[in-house]
């Protein structure tokens, strides 16, 4: 999860609508985008960024080490695999609806090579004022010492903007995504930022489904001394109905409910925000 203003960024799927549009926004932010890759479309330039046919060519020519992915779901597996084998250290998959089995295979490859995957179906990462590796709004906040970790995209924009509006700075923002099988987990992100010397406080944005917040609560109880502030969405969600994200479903019984997560996090010492915009008050 180590990104900085010195990271050399590759955009996979740079010629598509979303790829080209967000490449422009990331460049405007100051992100050091050095290459794009689209098979059979190499040789052109998008917003001044050279496009290559393969990740290997891009790595050889530019030394890029981090990738952000906009390719369609059915091609995401091949594109990510190509990156992992070509020496990219972290792939941030923005694409949604990537098949679960593809993610499982990719995570096995990443694990063997000690490489990182963030996402899929996520807004990406950002070190405010330094690097934006994602699709989040550029003007949410400035640099500071609060790390924001979120399963949700737009809800995290709302909360991060409220943090920024309150004059509080952010050391890192990471949207891990809401799919059931994905790269960085909430526990891994909390572990990373609890050991990050630039981070003094951690904001967690969770939602119904899975047992990830509960596992994170256990981790916090045993390992994290920095203050943790959490907001959990889905308190009013009906049982058995899937609320958008693949993971956002309350199974029969009490598994994965907002109330269960809130209790677990409270017991671990976290402060719980009742409303999204209460988060800055608790910071």
């Amino acid at each position: 999860m180590n990104i900085s203003e010195n990271s050399k960024v590759l955009v996979q799927g740079i010629t598509g609508n979303q790829g080209a549009f967000h490449t422009k926004l990331m460049l405007d932010y100051g992100t050091n985008i050095v290459a794009g890759v689209v098979p059979k479309k190499g040789g052109q330039k998008i917003h001044g960024v050279p496009v290559f046919n393969s990740v290997k060519d891009a790595v050889d020519e530019t030394g890029c080490d981090i990738s952000i992915m906009f390719v369609p779901a059915r091609f995401a597996f091949e594109a990510t695999k190509e990156s992992l084998y070509a020496g990219i250290k972290l792939v941030c998959i923005i694409t949604e609806n990537v098949p679960v089995l593809d993610m499982i295979k990719l995570l096995e490859i990443a694990h063997e090579g000690k490489l990182d995957i963030v996402g899929p179906n996520c807004p990406g990462m950002m070190i405010p004022d330094k690097i934006k590796l994602g699709i989040m709004p550029s003007d949410m906040c400035h640099y500071g010492n609060v790390a924001v970790i979120s399963k949700s995209g737009t809800l995290s924009y709302e909360i991060t903007k409220a943090i920024g509006n309150a004059g509080i700075g952010v050391s890192a923002y990471i949207g891990i995504g809401g799919d059931s099988v994905r790269g960085k987990t909430m526990v891994e992100a909390v572990e990373y930022y609890s050991n990050d010397s630039n981070t003094k406080k951690i904001v967690l944005i969770g939602e119904i489904g899975s047992n990830e917040e509960e596992k994170t609560a256990e981790y916090i109880k045993d390992h994290v001394s920095k203050p943790v502030i959490a907001y959990i969405a889905g308190k009013s969600a009906p049982e058995g109905k899937r609320m958008g994200h693949a993971g956002a479903i309350i199974s029969s019984g009490s598994f994965g409910t907002a109330q269960g997560k809130i209790k677990a996090l409270k017991d671990a010492g976290a402060l719980i925000a009742d409303l999204p915009w209460d988060v800055p008050k608790l910071l």
Partner: peptide
């Protein structure tokens, strides 16, 4: 966004307002 939509439904129900649906128009 699924999270933002859910949070909005939570806020409405905390205020005793009743949503007719959940609709996340997607990214």
């Amino acid at each position: 966004g699924a999270g933002l939509t859910m949070a909005l439904l939570d806020v409405l129900s905390q205020l005793d307002l009743k949503p007719a649906n959940f609709l996340d128009v997607g990214g």
